[in-house]
């Protein structure tokens, strides 16, 4: 409970920092709403209607209020009564109104989220399974060609830039040789098979990047556990090798892996900016790129807050999982 409270405080602070950074002037987010032939008077009016004329801190206050109570654009009760069609409402939790895309930011996030989530979850499964599997193999075959090969290959995938690997997959596996479909997002509910088939390349790209760290970590921890007394005991009492490996050795390396996996996943759910841009997936990452390109400040701020919420949530979940996995840890 204390943690969740601290997390909320953190989010509020972060939104303040973001507001001050982006809304302190210099940029003119209202320009897009005003249309092509924007007279100075109209400009001022638009600015006022959207609330951009106020200082950043005041706007931040309105943003906070909106996340709890919802808000209307423009904030004008008389106008809302007289002519409801001129007022745009944004129900709670309101993250702001995107002038560029003429929708509420929360709607944008809701539309894009399933794409990013699908990508993240599939990549996550791939890299965890792959990382732990190859890490264990490398540890068991320590010092051999197999070990060096696994560590070497994972390092190579780590070393090439993400977007390069993604583009390589896209241009050759999908376009040139047509082994995989050219990825485009299909809803899981529409066709589970197409959903999966289209996601293979993008999630593989992500998984390969992340896997290197997991291979190394699993390998290191399994090797370390080989030197422990409890492992010798387990062997001495005649447990089969597989049981020793899974129940005793891997169990010990679970905590660091879960920590790292939880935090990585939390960050990834918020959209893989590069992978999504490479494969043209309209997830949160692509939304972020678009909003930066079009100077869509409300969307940027909304995204920062949402993604930060994922990261903070992942931190909390990892802390709780700690206690579940490792009985020695107590939740403070």
């Amino acid at each position: 409970m204390r943690r969740i409270f601290a997390g909320v405080i953190m989010l509020i602070l972060m939104s303040l920092v973001t507001y001050v950074l982006f809304f302190s002037g210099g940029l003119h987010p209202e320009r897009a709403a005003c249309g092509k032939n924007c007279s100075p008077a109209q400009w001022e009016q638009t600015k006022k209607a959207l609330g951009y004329d106020k200082p950043a801190v005041v706007q931040w206050g309105e943003f906070l209020k909106g996340t709890v109570a919802g808000r209307t654009y423009p904030e004008d009760k008389a106008l809302a009564k007289a002519n409801p069609s001129l007022v745009s409402t944004c129900p709670a939790p309101c993250l702001g109104y995107s002038v560029v895309n003429t929708t509420n930011v929360s709607t944008e996030v809701k539309t894009a989220f399933p794409v990013s989530f699908s990508l993240a979850i599939l990549a996550f499964i791939m890299w965890i399974v792959g990382g732990v599997f190859f890490g264990v193999i490398a540890a068991l075959r320590r010092g051999t060609v197999v070990d060096r090969g696994i560590v070497g290959v994972s390092l190579i995938f780590y070393a090439f830039p993400t977007f390069w690997i993604g583009l390589f997959f896209l241009k050759f596996f999908a376009i040139q040789w047509q082994i995989f479909p050219v990825p485009s997002y299909v809803n899981l509910t529409d066709s589970p098979l197409a959903w999966l088939g289209n996601l293979v390349l993008p999630s593989l790209t992500l998984a390969l990047i992340y896997m290197a760290g997991y291979v190394r970590m699993t390998r290191a921890f399994v090797l370390e556990s080989f030197g422990e007394d409890y492992l010798r005991t387990a062997r001495a009492k005649g447990l089969p090798n597989r049981r020793v490996l899974v129940k005793h050795s891997l169990r010990a390396s679970l905590t660091p892996i879960v920590t790292m996996a939880g935090l990585d996943f939390g960050a990834l759910v918020g959209g893989a900016i590069i992978t999504e841009s490479v494969f043209n997936y309209d997830g949160l990452g692509a939304l972020a790129v678009d909003s930066v390109r079009t100077l869509d400040l409300p969307t940027i701020v909304g995204l920062v807050v949402v993604l930060a919420a994922f990261i903070i949530l992942a931190n909390i979940v990892v802390d709780i999982l700690y206690a579940v996995i490792d009985p020695r840890v107590r939740l403070g």
Partner: peptide, 10 residues
């Protein structure tokens, strides 16, 4: 806690 890539970009 800031989403890094997004911040670097934005």
């Amino acid at each position: 806690s800031f989403p890094q890539t997004l911040m670097l970009l934005a």
